[in-house]
Design a protein around this nucleic acid. Structure first.
Length: 812
RNA sequence: GCGGAUAUGUUGGAAUUGGCAGACAAGACGGACUUAGAAUCCGUUGGGAAACCGUGCAGGUUCGAGCCCUGUUAUCCGCACCA
């Protein structure tokens, strides 16, 4: 078969018939399959795109044949740094290069033969789309979920922009790998922390890979403990609040530590210590995140000269500052219990601070630092209590004396969304000298991104130097005002796109609420695991926030999530231009056709595992398809007479029904490689049957038709063509026919081969008729001519029968 | 350091979740057809002469373990001074 022209023929037919266009009337039997949309970074699809989209499309086609009204849209996450960096390098405007890339990618995506509903296509850089991204910002602002504050932010000196915490990897910029430094800037934040608890508990309600859920749990980082107030021993009795999960050790506090950024630090520093503390603050600010994050880094710190009072025993303890305490977590201050915390212990040893033991091991020796649960000692009336019980009692006591209370802390921090870059959605806020920050009125949206902007980085936002953009009137008082020169993090754009697709052309709202409630959640979402703590968390946050605003009525955006594995270079490492191990799909597609390539991708890897690229088997897939074509051709031309339903025909029927059952199951589980294997078996069975003397054309055709149907999701154009040759030219498309259903009765054979074991060792195999009782099976086995001699002079103590599998005789 | 995953023939990978390990392929070898074969079809293919032995390694539970438990090693991924 000439794959290229057959593919073209069917792709045009599908297009013309509008086959994959979702009909709103079908919303009650909808099945929303979504693949993560892609960034239009390259002119062509790379192997990763194919591996993500092609098998996922096969899954969508499978659901369609099962009778669902499948909605499978595609679009482009079109804003972002790479286009801008490319522009800086080459001078090509981001809008132009992005549009060019999108046009090219659309073309190849169509050539892939995927059943996307292109009528719902969206591009995040389109004003018709980002108008609503800006609208989202305004809603969050209106509901106190967006706020502006001066904050220490992650700053990438090379990209000259702020990065979200999630975009900092090991202290390096996720994109350009330069060391990230910290800067104080006024930024917009989304209050994702308001949803910390629900983002955590909601994970138990969704069908996601356990690994990904665990990553989100760790990222949210819930920890239950106690906030305790240590009053400074000064005139103001300043309150130093610390967070601890181990309030059972509070009698053993040896000192208190403030993070170098802590607001109380300068106030508590005495004159004679001022110079040392100032130097330390400067030292800590300079240390970049790589140094700071290293656990092996030696602990440093300086004494402030001040003291604080331990609320439980009145002890006067020194106040230090040290950068092993993070300002961004908890209260930015900790109580140090040298005897029962490794870090505090190390610090105390280094600076010769006392170590007060307040816990002892229940059994055996207590070696300091002792950090496990222990029995309290030197803790006044709490002596003798243990672990959780001790913590409860002390927390109650602290509450009683007004010096603390139970507290839950999260590691999750608010999401910083301002970016000092050009190629993104402008933040819809105006700064008026009199009114301050004023949101742009909804009717004035979108705030359009101007084209003629100097985007070479200067450390300032490129938009800041565009006077036409910046100058405006205050929407409140009408005075001259300035726009926010920053753009939104592109993750904002991708946090709600799945809500836009079903209603992609709505001009009056981001989506029709009633319709979206019918179409969402996404039934199956497919994409890479690298988004675990970013996109997938942000999208959940947006859904929950919009729900609480009343715009939609479901709790989670993605019911089921599947990650495709990564395809590595032939050398086993990640594909990259610098390593020169990039595999291009184009040549394979040109030589074998898209269907063959798709089928190979499904067969050669375990979908969720991926692995190093290897094209050894692609010829065999091509051979397999030719084999299918030949046998289908043969079945199509045979006279369709019924046969005598002999043994051979029963075997073929068995193979046909077995394939139906297994392939359905495997597709549902994204176990495509085994599904293809079962189809190869069915093909082999057809050839075997074809070799028989007495064969029935009808049985042959039945098997061939089901083979083509089962294979159709994986090789769509190829199977359309075969379906037509099987005499269904008038039916339209194979994808409008019903998926085969397994007849369980055909899977029951008259006899089954059992393995026969004596004392768990296999001795022989024998055929046992279907429907015998365990007693009858036992009798048959004992009477077997190979088994009988082995039982002589022994008694059978026990007989284990596993139906359809084996019999195990325990003899003594 | 913490958390998660993975480890199976020469190779990619299966194993109905505790029941015949190695499905389906690739590769190799042999045969048929052929002037020819990189086409097609059909065999063989974990080790061992055999009893038997074989799922990273060492134990355990069980009639029975690739699968469960304990320990251990290697690789990958995520988090990492989170108080």
């Amino acid at each position: 078969m000439d794959m290229r022209s057959v593919e073209k023929k069917w792709q045009e037919k599908w297009e013309k018939a509008g086959m994959y266009r979702f009909d709103r009337k079908d919303a009650d039997k909808k099945f929303y399959v979504l693949e993560m949309f892609s960034y239009p970074s390259a002119a062509k699809l790379h192997l990763g795109h194919w591996y993500n989209y092609a098998p996922a499309d096969s899954y969508a086609r499978f659901k369609r044949m099962q009778g669902y009204a499948v909605f499978q849209p595609m679009g482009f996450d079109a804003f972002g740094l790479p286009a801008e960096n490319y522009a800086i390098k080459t001078g090509v405007h981001p809008k132009d290069s992005t549009e060019q890339n999108i046009a090219n990618m659309e073309k190849t995506l169509r050539e892939m033969g995927a059943s996307f509903d292109w009528s719902a296509e969206l591009k995040t850089c389109d004003p018709a789309y980002y108008k609503w991204t800006q609208w989202m910002f305004l809603q969050l602002y209106k509901h106190n979920l967006a706020y502006r504050k001066e904050a220490l932010v992650n700053w990438c000196p090379s990209c000259e922009t702020v990065l979200a915490n999630e975009q900092v990897v090991n202290g390096l910029c996720e994109r350009c790998k330069s060391p990230v430094s910290r800067r104080n800037m006024t930024q917009w934040f989304f209050k994702i922390t308001d949803y910390a608890e629900e983002l955590l508990s909601g994970l138990d309600t969704i069908d996601w890979p356990e690994k990904t859920k665990q990553m989100q749990r760790n990222w949210i980082g819930k920890s239950t403990g106690c906030e305790i107030i240590f009053n400074a021993d000064n005139a103001d009795k300043d309150e130093i609040r610390v967070f601890t999960t181990r309030c059972d050790t509070v009698f053993g506090v040896n000192y208190v530590v403030l993070a170098p950024e802590h607001p109380l630090l300068r106030k508590l520093t005495t004159e004679e210590n001022r110079q040392a503390v100032e130097e330390y603050i400067a030292y800590a600010a300079k240390a970049n995140d790589i140094d700071r994050l290293s656990t092996s880094r030696e602990k440093t710190g300086v004494f402030t000269g001040s003291y604080a009072v331990n609320p439980v025993n009145g002890k006067r303890i020194p106040v230090y500052t040290a950068d092993y305490v993070l300002y961004s977590y908890g209260t930015g201050a900790v109580m140090a219990v040298s005897a029962h915390d490794e870090r505090d212990f190390e610090f105390a040893k280094k600076y010769n601070l006392p170590v007060t033991q307040v816990l002892r091991a229940k059994k055996g020796e207590t070696v300091l630092p002792y950090t496990d649960n222990g029995v309290l000692v030197n803790s006044g009336k709490f002596d003798g209590l243990y672990g959780e019980e001790a913590r409860e009692a002390i927390a109650a006591y602290l509450t009683e004396i007004g010096k603390g209370s139970k507290k839950i802390n999260y590691r999750l921090r608010d999401w910083s969304v301002s970016r000092q870059r050009y190629w993104g959605a402008p933040i819809p806020v105006i700064y008026c000298p009199d009114c301050g920050a004023v949101p742009v009125p909804e009717e004035d949206l979108p705030v359009e991104l101007p084209y003629d902007v100097e985007f070479r980085p200067t450390g300032k936002s490129p938009l800041a130097s565009h006077e036409g953009f910046m100058n405006c009137k205050c929407p409140r008082c009408g005075k001259a005002a300035r726009r926010d020169p920053d753009t939104l993090d592109t993750f904002v754009c991708s946090s709600w796109y799945y809500l836009r697709y079903p209603d992609a052309h709505n001009q009056n709202a981001p989506f029709d609420g009633a319709f979206i409630d019918k179409m969402l959640p996404v039934d199956t979402y497919i994409g890479g695991a690298e988004h675990a703590c970013m996109h997938l968390l942000y999208a959940r946050f947006f859904t929950k926030a919009l729900r609480d605003m009343g715009y939609l009525h479901f709790d989670e955006p993605f019911k089921r999530l599947v990650h495709q594995g990564g395809i590595l270079g032939t050398d086993g490492s990640r594909m990259s231009k610098s390593k020169g191990n990039v595999v291009s799909p184009d040549d394979y597609v040109k030589e074998y056709g898209a269907d063959t390539f798709r089928l190979y991708l499904m067969f050669a890897f375990s979908y969720t595992e991926g692995g190093p690229w290897n094209d050894d088997g692609i010829r065999s897939i091509s051979k397999f398809m030719e084999r299918v074509e030949r046998i289908v051709e043969k079945a199509a031309t045979m006279p369709a007479s019924e046969g005598k339903n002999g043994e051979e025909e029963k075997e073929l029927e068995y193979a046909r029904n077995y394939a139906i059952k297994q392939v359905s199951r495997d597709f549902e589980a994204f176990s495509f490689n085994t599904a293809v294997a079962r189809l190869m078996e069915l093909t082999n069975a057809l050839y075997k049957y074809d070799g028989c003397k007495e064969k029935s054309g009808a049985a042959m055709k039945r098997a061939a038709e089901d083979l083509v149907k089962l294979l159709a999701p994986a090789a769509p154009a190829f199977c359309e063509e075969l379906w037509e040759r099987l005499g269904h030219a008038d039916d339209g498309s194979i994808f409008n026919t019903a998926y085969p259903v397994c007849d369980e009765k055909k899977l029951v054979r008259d006899e089954t081969e059992y393995a026969v074991q004596i004392n768990s060792r296999i001795k022989c195999r024998m055929m046992i008729a279907h429907g015998l009782s365990e007693e009858e099976i036992r009798a048959a086995v004992c009477d077997n001519e190979e088994i009988r001699p082995l039982l002589e002079g022994k008694t059978v103590k026990k007989c284990i029968v596993v139906p359809g599998r084996l019999v195990n005789l325990i003899v003594g």
